[in-house]
């Protein structure tokens, strides 16, 4: 399909020589304009799935494509369509915020002419203020989270991948990020994120992929269900299927 941004097909991943699969037979897709949530208990395999999708980790079986580009056969092509926020907010702490954004722009080949405008747009959401000129080493947890998010969007990716994005953010920024996610998806991009914040997932997601002990339990269209069943309780559904 032309509007298919992510396609994960029968993904299997094992760590080292361990006998059990970290991810076993997981398949889902994300279409343009969709927000898809990846849910599961701690250690269920959400982060591993996202890391395989981002090309951070190799996987044993299956196929992953981003905007039609295979992550194994055309890693650079696939990665250039993606912006990511990792759960550990790994960032170059010896750079200032601006230098980090410049680095990302250089890597994703964002023209110099549009950078200023994009920095301004992102600043209006994340409000780092003058801190953007400080060394990232001096940032708080939440500020690192913000600069990671800014870096993940500055090149306007088709797919925005976020691992636990709301952790460490203040309520105002959390709301701003939620609005940004909705707007970003509406403008024809895809968003895939993992979270434990069920209310956020219920408010934002079009679909939810539930993973339990590495296996996919369901791929649920929460919008359709909520529309057809006003009594549908997402939290109840999640807790009854999660363990």
């Amino acid at each position: 399909m032309s509007d298919e941004i992510v396609k994960v097909d029968r993904l299997f991943k094992k760590y080292g020589k361990r006998a059990e699969w970290a991810v076993e037979d997981v398949s889902f897709d994300v279409k343009a304009g969709e927000i898809v949530g990846l849910l599961g208990h701690n250690g269920a395999g959400k982060s591993t799935t996202l890391r395989c999708l981002e090309g951070m980790l190799p996987f044993d079986r299956g196929n992953i494509s981003i905007c039609g580009r295979d992550i194994v056969r055309d890693p650079i092509g696939a990665k250039s369509q993606m912006g990511f926020v990792t759960d550990d907010h790994a960032v170059f702490v010896k750079m200032t915020g601006v230098q980090y954004l410049d680095f990302i722009c250089d890597v994703y080949k964002v023209p110099v002419g549009v950078r200023k405008e994009r920095y301004r747009e992102l600043e209006s959401v994340f409000a780092l203020g003058d801190s953007v000129r400080d060394l990232i080493a001096s940032y708080s947890h939440g500020m690192r989270q913000k600069i990671c998010m800014m870096g993940s969007l500055v090149h306007r990716p088709k797919l925005w991948v976020l691992d636990e994005p709301m952790t460490g953010l203040d309520p105002r920024t959390m709301r701003a990020v939620r609005e940004l996610m909705t707007d970003y998806a509406k403008s024809g991009n895809g968003i895939l994120f993992s979270s434990h914040a069920l209310d956020t997932v219920a408010k934002l997601c079009d679909r939810v992929v539930l993973i339990r002990k590495g296996k996919q339990v369901s791929d649920l269209n929460v919008r359709e269900i909520a529309a057809s069943d006003p009594d549908f309780d997402f939290e109840e559904y999640y807790l009854s299927n999660e363990s």
Partner: peptide
């Protein structure tokens, strides 16, 4: 601890990867 503001500004020209 105290934070020292640096004077780094946005780059004027793009760099290759």
């Amino acid at each position: 601890g105290g934070v020292r503001h640096l004077t780094a500004r946005a780059q004027r020209r793009a760099l290759s990867p």
